[in-house]
């Protein structure tokens, strides 16, 4: 962390290799050798634990699933005949799958955009001379401390049709009770609210950490140029935060597209994996679950999961690209 004036932070620019150059300076021969060996080998050692453990506990399941997706594989069934790309062919024309993808996307947008905007706002509010800052900082990230299960139990109560605090409050304004699970817009909003409630503060903290790394003289320089607070925010803060925003967007994409527990618990009761009477809020992950554990069609479930995986990769790269472009304008 270098907000020290003498060590400016190279926070700008796309993340890439650090500036090469002045490395081959005058050094003793043996130490150069050792250092070369060090810089050649140690990076691999540092990343080795990850790849080692990942290969066992991450890659193997992935490959296994790919294999399964090429079979007519009934869970706990006796035989698993090869079926080639049948599962994938079925998926292309599967309305339920496309519906779940659309829901996932909708909930993702409704949770990510407001969440990150709000987080930026909160971070900039927190990044001021403030009394009780510890209190404010802690209180906004407090929701993280609750489990999804607890969140869902509490929010289900709040969103209850007959006895919920939210409908009760709306009733005070003459709005008749909303059955939140019943339509797309309402179920999407309610689920997004749970996600937003839980993660906005966390993102705000990440943004705050990055904001604190911005040297103050940049703001002073901007102020000297006559930039007001808003201009300072858009011209200095946001561009310098670009790597951080990129990071949060990618994380949100990955988390958002795998959304499972919140919608599942929100649609409490029998056949909750359907995500509502007409699958108003069934996400792709829930559809994977339905196929694997309700229909026991593990082959098809694996195919859906693999497609989901590829879609996430695609979206994460698109988002990364978009955010880079966005920041690049300045």
């Amino acid at each position: 962390m270098s907000t020290d004036v003498t060590t400016p932070v190279p926070a700008t620019g796309p993340p890439g290799p650090p500036p090469a150059g002045n490395r081959q300076s005058r050094k003793e021969h043996w130490s150069a050798l050792r250092s070369r060996a060090d810089s050649k080998i140690s990076p691999y050692l540092y990343i080795a634990p990850f790849f080692l453990l990942f290969a066992i506990f991450g890659l193997y399941p992935l490959v296994y699933t790919a294999w399964v997706s090429l079979h007519d594989w009934e869970l706990a069934g006796a035989e698993h005949p090869w079926s080639g790309l049948d599962n994938y062919r079925q998926l292309v024309t599967d309305e339920v799958f496309w519906n779940s993808l659309w829901n996932t996307f909708g909930i993702f947008v409704l949770s990510t955009v407001p969440q990150l905007t709000l987080a930026l706002l909160i971070a900039s509010l927190l990044n001021r001379r403030l009394r009780g800052r510890t209190f404010f900082r802690l209180s906004v990230i407090l929701p993280m401390a609750t489990s999804v299960a607890a969140v869902s139990i509490v929010f289900s109560q709040l969103f209850s049709r007959d006895f919920g605090l939210i409908n009760w409050t709306l009733g005070g304004f003459g709005i008749s009770p909303i059955e939140w699970q019943a339509s797309k817009w309402s179920s999407w909003s309610a689920i997004s609210l749970m996600v937003n409630w839980r993660w906005t503060g966390y993102n705000a903290l990440i943004f705050l950490a990055a904001m604190q790394a911005i040297p103050r003289d940049l703001y002073e320089a901007a102020a000297l140029d006559g930039a007001g607070p808003w201009k300072q925010f858009t011209r200095v803060t946001v561009p310098l935060l670009r790597p951080t925003i990129l990071f949060t967007v990618i994380i949100a994409t990955i988390g958002g597209f795998q959304l499972f527990t919140e919608p599942l618990l929100f649609n409490s009761g029998s056949s909750n994996y359907q995500g509502g009477s007409l699958r108003q809020s069934q996400t792709v992950s829930m559809y994977v679950w339905e196929n694997a554990f309700v229909k026991f069609d593990f082959g098809y479930a694996s195919a859906v999961a693999w497609v989901l995986f590829l879609i996430i990769l695609l979206f994460a790269s698109l988002n990364a690209l978009a955010v880079r472009r966005l920041g690049g304008k300045d």
Binding site: G58, P61, L62, V284, V288, A305, W306, F309
Partner: peptide, 11 residues
């Protein structure tokens, strides 16, 4: 990170 969690469950 993009690997869906529910997927890995059985393997």
């Amino acid at each position: 990170m993009a690997i869906p969690v529910q997927l890995g469950l059985i393997p």
